[in-house]
């Protein structure tokens, strides 16, 4: 039910590179898993509300006041490649 083309498309959405043999293997594995998940179709859920979250919490607001944030120098320590206080990445456009 899931084709090689589907897997290639999803891999593109997920931004993951795959080898040819991996695409083949994932096509098989994901098909088996999705077939199992098809079990959910046994239930009539037309009148059921979805639960994305178990707590009775809606939006959580806070006052818009300035708070101390992490020092920039601390945060920049995690950078893979940086240029002064900026994260450096390969070029985005030609």
């Amino acid at each position: 039910m899931i084709t090689r083309k589907d897997v290639e498309y999803v891999a593109k959405l997920a931004r993951i590179g795959f080898s040819e043999s991996e695409i083949e293997q994932f096509t098989k594995e994901l098909s088996a898993i999705l077939e199992y998940i098809g079990k959910l179709n046994e239930l009539d859920v037309s009148k059921v509300e979805p639960t994305s979250h178990v707590l009775p919490i809606k939006n959580v607001y806070r006052e818009d006041v300035l708070k101390k944030s992490l020092p920039v120098s601390d945060v920049m320590k995690i950078a893979v490649v940086k240029d002064k206080n900026q994260f450096k990445v390969p070029k985005v456009i030609e």
């Binding site: 997920a14 931004r15 993951i16 994932f26 594995e29 994901l30 999705l34 390969p90 070029k91």
Partner: peptide
């Protein structure tokens, strides 16, 4: 370019089960 970097990093960085779950969730 940046997009290539995403693909290459995520291909090299994630293990098999992580890839499997990201793929299933993305689908």
């Amino acid at each position: 370019d940046l997009i290539d970097m995403y693909f290459a990093t995520r291909e090299a960085g994630f293990g098999k089960e992580a890839k499997r779950r990201i793929m299933l969730g993305t689908y």
